[in-house]
């Protein structure tokens, strides 16, 4: 093995380069957000002015907008993802139907987000507008609610795929023990499968959340681009990702640009923490199931 130091050298080098790459990424983001950090400090995270004329920036409305849309999308998507994963991981394991459903569930993950946005603009927005006029709220059509609906369609595959895996991991002997005591399937699911797969289901939701927080194009196209703290679930808003997509190439003031990058940094850390927690739970679940 030692006869070929160059080959191993290349392996090590590429590994080291990854760490440099990520360190560089951190450093770049931080350096470019320094001017706004200096100007506003942590005020960026709780102040709600976004005024390019006076050069005063606080990202609170976008933080609220992001969390609002992402959690609403999760609320919409969880029942669907859970139903799918119970069907595929428990009821229909290995049947033809499960193959078909599995494919139908996975395909949406491959459709580009800009196409979700385009489709949303022409089909979902008018639908929601007519819903809004029935409910007697301002019929914008675009807004948090619309963005969440589209987002939830997009994240179902992510949530479901992990839930299916964890539900499949529930040991047979546990389930069989419950059946032998006379439990029906729904009782087994409620009392054995779900409690056992709880943390995996939670991890699936977290990963879908990480995905929802960072989603840009589809949301940008239907959220209404308003820089205020949304007052209702139908209100137009902006998310952290959408404000960056909208203003990044056109922010003429360096402070404005730097503020946008700081929003990017926050988004980066937020998704990173959520993904890390999710992955840690998965690791624990998987090692728990086998070990």
């Amino acid at each position: 093995m030692k006869s070929e130091p160059t080959f191993k050298g290349i392996l090590y080098l590429s590994a080291a380069s990854t760490i440099f790459l990520l360190a560089g990424l951190f450093f770049t983001l931080l350096r470019h957000s320094l001017p706004s950090l200096k100007a506003f400090g942590f005020g960026m995270f709780y102040r709600s002015v976004w005024n390019p004329v006076s050069g005063d920036f606080g990202a609170f409305p976008f933080i609220v907008g992001t969390l609002f849309t992402a959690f609403l999308a999760l609320a919409f998507c969880t029942p669907f993802a859970l139903a799918i994963s119970l069907l595929l991981g428990e009821y229909w394991r290995g049947t033809t139907w499960s193959g078909i459903l599995q494919t139908l569930i996975e395909v949406p993950a491959g459709i580009p987000s800009v196409i979700y946005g385009f489709w949303g603009l022409f089909l979902v927005v008018p639908l929601i507008r007519s819903l809004e006029s029935k409910l007697h709220v301002a019929p914008y059509g675009v807004g948090i609610f619309t963005a969440s609906v589209i987002l939830s369609i997009m994240i179902i595959p992510y949530a479901a795929s992990l839930m299916i895996e964890t539900i499949k991991l529930v040991p047979y002997d546990l389930k069989e023990a419950a059946y032998s005591l006379g439990a029906t399937r729904v009782e087994v699911i409620r009392n054995v499968v779900l409690p056992y797969a709880r943390s995996g289901v939670f991890a699936g939701i977290l990963l879908a959340l990480g995905r929802a927080l960072g989603e840009t194009m589809a949301v940008t196209m239907v959220i209404g681009n308003s820089n205020f703290i949304p007052k209702s679930i139908f209100a137009p808003a902006n998310t952290m990702a959408s404000i960056i997509a909208n203003e990044f190439t056109e922010a003429s003031d360096p402070l404005h640009l730097s503020s946008l990058i700081e929003v990017g940094v926050l988004l980066f850390f937020l998704t990173m923490v959520i993904n890390m927690i999710g992955k840690a739970i998965i690791r624990r679940t998987v090692s728990g199931a086998y070990g």
């Binding site: 390019p52 004329v53 006076s54 675009v142 209404g224 681009n225 820089n227 902006n238 203003e247 003429s252």
Partner: peptide, 17 residues
């Protein structure tokens, strides 16, 4: 209240690109 510029802080409304 608002002032002038290429982008301003709008008191009301929806934004579009």
């Amino acid at each position: 209240r608002v002032g002038e510029g290429v982008s301003v802080s709008w008191p009301v409304g929806l934004g579009a690109k």
